[in-house]
Design a binder for these strands. Sequence first.
RNA 1: GGAGCUGUGGUGAAGUUGGAGUUCACGCCGGCCUGUCACGCCGGAGGUCGCGGGUUCGAGCCCCGUCAGCUCCGCCA
Length: 587
Amino acid sequence: MRYRTHTCGELNEGHVGKMTTLNGWVQKRRDLGGLIFLDVRDRSGIVQVVCNPEHAPEATKIAEKVRSEFVLAIQGQVVSRSEETINKKMKTGAIEIVAEEVEIVNEAKTPPFAVEDDVEVDETTRLKHRYIDLRRPMMQNTLILRHQVMQKVRSFLSEEGFIEVETPMLTKSTPEGARDYLVPSRVHKGEFYALPQSPQIFKQLLMVSGMERYFQIVRCFRDEDLRADRQPEFTQIDIEASFLEPEVFLSMMETMVADLCEETIGHKVSTPFERLTYKEAMNRFGSDRPDLRFDMELVDLSEMVKESGFQVFASTVANGGRVRAINVKGQAGWSRKQVDEWGKIAQQFGAKGLAWLAVKEEGTKGPVAKFLGETEWHDIMKATEAETGDLLFFIADQPKKSAEVLGELRVRLAKHLDLIPKGVFRFAWVTEFPLLAYDEEADRWFAEHHPFTSPMDEDLPLLETDPGSVRAKAYDMVLNGYELGGGSQRIHRREVQEAMFRALGFTMEEAKEEFGFLLDAFEYGAPPHGGVAFGLDRIVMLLAGRSNLRDTIAFPKTASASCLLTDAPSAVEENQLRELHISLRES
RNA sequence: GGAGCUGUGGUGAAGUUGGAGUUCACGCCGGCCUGUCACGCCGGAGGUCGCGGGUUCGAGCCCCGUCAGCUCCGCCA
């Protein structure tokens, strides 16, 4: 066969008169009886080839046998089309290739679905035949975008003096965090490696090693249940730096991400990014990854309703809870059934109930209405900026719960009511995360991020007295309601680390047992350092305007973590198990 | 672990009150067709209605179970 001199998509009027050889797949054959048109596709695009029985009888004869997705080699001349046959919908529509020779390089079975962007096919079929699915231009473009993002990140970070260092895939299982994927050791009977959830400890070790600036585009694994934006194996852009002012570091990361947006999808992003403290994000949006593309902010009514005749409100506030509301503009006309639907959704998120008020011309409707006094009602109207025609939703619960439930409702309502503007990218940093979270079940404090995250200096004394209120030098980059990445400044001073472990209920000796080698390493001169990890898949998903992580990954897993293409996971031979000293249990 | 939705020729759908595997579009196969690009026209083939059980004289349709996919809760940072 002949190999290409040009790609299909690059051809234009500038090539008219030239001989060309193309390789590609048959997108479509149109046989007019005499003339045969072939749309030939490669990664770059589609071009029309015309086979004329008078001009090239041999080639036309072969073209008759051609079917969709056959692989062809075509030799011919680029000619401009006559005015009336120009196809303005095609990038290459002003020209066509007059075939001299057509070679069927490989035949193809009829594909299970058409290789076109807008075909609706069940995802099972797409995943089973992923190699065909990936022929679709949209899928190819997403993978190309992904490649570009990786390229830009690599060049940006290299430019800033970061070194890409690989860290082990076979590593040690750690008790904290997500469930590990385990790999049995053949050599060490009864022992297991874990696949990394992230290279966290290694990148800090590299700081102790004096690498100063490290990054890695690295696969990470977490054996937890999947979501549309969560895969069991995913890719992180992992970054860590020593001797770098946190502010300088954050600004560097902003620039990287803003440049990415502009250089890949041409979307200009202004820096510096908006900043919100965790507290502000929770109070205003009920989320630590707020979607800032629309309003409908949460309003705290606790003070106004603490003496309310509506017992649920009054007693919630009396017990340290909060009463919050959102104003669903212009939806007072909803039926009881519609409102109840949202009550069910609120309950799904753990709310005890959803109180509501519809502000109508004839008066206020809703189960809460009759309990509210005149002043109370006036205050609420003012605080929520409610007008006639608005619908108010209330959640009364513990402070965090009431915010989170309403935050979820806020996002879902906005989607439902189509309030989210398209093509908008609202980046922000969320800062001052809580350092610790209390686990009721275990009856102890856990590190919210990880145990090496530095507390804020001014909160250090609180570590002994009020651990729950200690803020961390931790930050998340958020975009449109998604967490793009998160990081922190790490503890590098021994006395702070000891205070941290005391708060977690460990002695230094116990901590060493748990986190051994990192703490050992820290005793040999750890520099001040901090870093961040971005979710590459999510970045690509958002840049590509997709709502599903699978579309950004060449060979993704289904919701039950299996691969429909390879049929993984699967049973293995008994002798494989024997070598690994494994016997399967009944339950 | 739980909830919801979906499952019908290769693909996407429709399928009435439970009455013959019925229908539509695309695709596929054959024939005709020299300017199509959603080519057109004529003809044809193609089915374990996801799977198993039950109710019934009779099930794509009703009931129970189960599997798979998707979305969500729990889980996960």
